[in-house]
């Protein structure tokens, strides 16, 4: 395992706003890393420092051991443009070729197009693509240069479930071919589906950095869903942390020990029906983590 990216005591301010506050972090080869956090948490700033787009106010950022602002260091880095950014008048094949020409050993256009399901549209102008196709093209661009490290910023925002799964499969295949991937997302299921290691940032700090199961384990919560005329009575029980009314009139509660809460429900004779229970998702885990820091 080698260190691909290194942040040492990195602080970045915009005027008097501190986007990153004394962050120290290493990204080693071999994983898909999920970078999570609410809007404005510092995710994009973290990536833009690695891309050489911005410089830290203090501290050092290293990409493959060198300065990210030096274009030669970015030879093995893969990034995605926002899908709205693609030059609309250029054809898909032209965009892939244009980007490929920046790299020493680019993947041939036909091959990368096949990998991301773009083979039929190489001669179409990018402006004529659907949202999902544009997104596949954007993500494909990150892999054109056979990168060692790939940064995907919100790769599937706005896509339907099928399109997201297709894209995830492509990213996983690329990962199996040796690319280390850092993916930011506010779709938690995306990070859950892809990531092996999860870094949670909030207000410029890294508040959690661990393997996916450990992050999940940090809140050993269950989501308890049921219909009841007395939601407040349920909320008043021990170990019930959070209440969310659902659209269909049922209620979801975040609880610690699910079995104990159900026993308690019965003992208190609170009427309920349609009870179901599931493990808390990363989104819920992550909400609990950020609430912990603000408390």
């Amino acid at each position: 395992m080698t260190t691909l990216a290194h942040f040492d005591s990195v602080t970045r301010r915009y005027g008097d706003v501190t986007a990153l506050d004394n962050v120290t972090l290493d990204i080693e080869s071999g994983h898909i890393v999920g970078l999570l956090g609410p809007n404005g948490a510092g995710k994009t700033t973290l990536l833009s420092l690695l891309q050489g787009l911005r410089r830290p106010t203090s501290g050092t950022v290293r990409l493959f051991g060198g300065e990210p602002g030096d274009y030669r260091q970015r030879q093995r880095l893969g990034c995605t443009p926002q899908e709205t950014a693609l030059p609309q008048a250029l054809k898909v094949g032209e965009i892939l070729q244009f980007v490929g020409k920046h790299f020493d050993d680019p993947v041939p256009v036909d091959e990368i197009a096949a990998e991301f399901g773009l083979s039929d549209m190489l001669r179409k102008q990018s402006g004529a693509l659907s949202g999902g196709q544009k997104r596949r093209l954007s993500v494909a661009l990150a892999f054109v240069g056979r990168p060692m490290l790939v940064l995907l910023d919100e790769p599937t925002t706005g896509l339907d479930v099928d399109a997201r799964r297709t894209l995830w499969q492509a990213v996983r295949r690329q990962h199996e071919n040796g690319a280390t991937v850092v993916v930011t997302s506010h779709y938690i299921d995306e990070v859950e589906a892809l990531a092996e290691r999860v870094i949670v940032v909030d207000e410029g700090h890294v508040i959690a950095d661990d393997d996916l199961p450990q992050i999940l384990g940090q809140v050993q919560g269950r989501m308890l869903r049921l219909s009841t005329p007395q939601p407040d009575a349920v909320l008043a029980l021990d170990d019930v942390r959070h209440h969310q009314p659902e659209n269909d009139g049922s209620h979801t509660f975040l609880v610690g020990d699910g079995d104990a809460v159900v026993t308690e429900l019965v003992r208190e004779s609170i009427p309920f029906s349609n009870l179901s229970m599931r493990r808390a998702t990363l989104e819920e885990a992550f909400l609990a983590l950020t609430e912990k820091t603000t408390a």
Binding site: Y71, C79, Q82, L86, H102
Partner: peptide, 15 residues
């Protein structure tokens, strides 16, 4: 001001 420009800056290309 277009988002394509920051992407081009991430490519290995000198200014």
């Amino acid at each position: 001001e277009k988002p394509w420009d920051p992407y081009l800056r991430t490519l290995p290309v000198p200014g």
